[in-house]
Amino acid sequence: MIDALEIGDDCLVLSQRLCQWVTRAPTLEEDVALANLALDLLGQARLLLSRAGDEDDLAYLREPAQFRNCLLVEQPNGDFAHTIVRHLLYSDFLFDLYDRHPGDDVAAKGVKEIAYHRDYARLWILRLGLGTDESHRRTTAALEALWPFTGELSQPSPFVLDVLREASLAVPDVAQREGGRRGEHTEHLAPLLAELQVLHRAHPGARW
């Protein structure tokens, strides 16, 4: 069974992170693409958190230590390579999870959306890995920074390893970190939640 709180939190936090690119992405097309990815994840977060309780209370009124998202999704956007590597690693995990639960209605719907996410990330990894010395260097740095958070997800899958091989990128040899599922987060989650929650906390029940 899919843990609605853990995966709902993953989707919510990653969606919020991606929204931080809006109006700042390298090109207009990527701005639109990243906003679309964020929108899909927000939709899935709402469906899953509604299953776990009241979606607004869960999103707006919990403290960082009460969030059950994995550490990977709360990592900062960094440069474009960091954002793409993070998205490859997380969509790889979420695609496999949804794919293993065809009887779950959120998963059955979400798997079709996440297939596009994974493919989007794959195509960018190929372009970045095989692009210029600079793009290769930045993507390698992003992999080294984010690889420690893959163990918590029991990933990557052969899909990711194939993409990296195809993109001439090395699999990093780095120690693993975990703790997000127990509420032990990195220092990056609290500021993100502060931004997400400030309006609702200042004006409870505010509506557009």
Binding site: E29, E30, V32, A33, A35, N36, L37, L39, D40, Y116, D119, Y120
Partner: peptide, 13 residues
Amino acid sequence: LVSRFSSTACKAL
């Protein structure tokens, strides 16, 4: 294909 994502979630450019 210019971008797989466009003005709404259901469209590509």
